[in-house]
Nucleic acid binder design. Structure first.
Lengths: 114, 114
DNA sequence: AGTAATCGTTACGGATGCGTTTCATTCTCA
DNA sequence: TGAGAATGAAACGCATCCGTAACGATTACT
């Protein structure tokens, strides 16, 4: 149900997508930010800061700041957990979903031309 | 000779590779830097600053600084063009080749588990 | 109740990247 | 040979990111 990519194919895929990110009008996020965004959208909620930090093996401030940046871009939202008001729940947004749809398109499209 | 990736598969691939980049001991380059590095290694030399800037549609200082950074990491090298001493030729290094080999491995390996 | 633990944020200091402008060097060619 | 173009680098100001160490708010424990 999948084929292993050769070295040249894999690198071409990566280059094409990276280049599209550089040229595209959308903000190009850091590697850390992309990891966080994808985790929020691909794994089941709820997502807390501490959970994300542990899962991605980074410090909590990294998560906080990434959410600040991506929040400004409206790619994610924060909400207080009413059950335990110490927690902050990270939530998805329409814009974030669209952003990832486009990213997936780029990857998928480029993988066709190997 | 290739299969289109579904949205979920494409995003999983991207997430796994990004995460590996974040965790790995090697420096994680910016999107621009990766584009430059891949261009240098995938297209036929010689590569000049001006040529790279035009090909990637970025300003020349972006190329210069990226080469500064990646030069410190020993991923690329510069050499004066003796034929036209205004030009600087960007050259590959063993370390740069190994870096991209590893990146290709990450992409290839992850694409198997779809 | 009151102390300790947990959670997310903020503050600080440092590093790095970017865009634009300016500059020194080198070449072109009239 | 001398004016002008071309090339890459440096300078400047700005924005962003990181790691560590505090901090306020909230909850758990005894």
């Amino acid at each position: 149900m999948s084929i292993p990519l050769g070295t040249a194919q894999a690198l071409k895929l990566w280059r094409d997508v990276s280049l599209a990110q550089v040229h595209g009008k959308e903000a190009d996020l850091s590697t850390r930010q992309v990891s966080i965004l994808l985790t929020v959208y691909m794994e089941a909620p709820p997502h807390t800061i501490r959970e994300l930090a542990k899962k991605l093996q980074v410090s909590k401030p990294v998560i906080t700041r990434a959410l600040d940046s991506m929040g400004k871009l409206d790619l994610v939202t924060r909400r207080r957990d009413e059950a335990d008001r110490r927690n902050v729940l990270v939530q998805r947004t329409v814009k974030g979903a669209l952003y990832l749809d486009r990213l997936a398109d780029l990857i998928g499209l480029n993988s066709k031309n190997l």
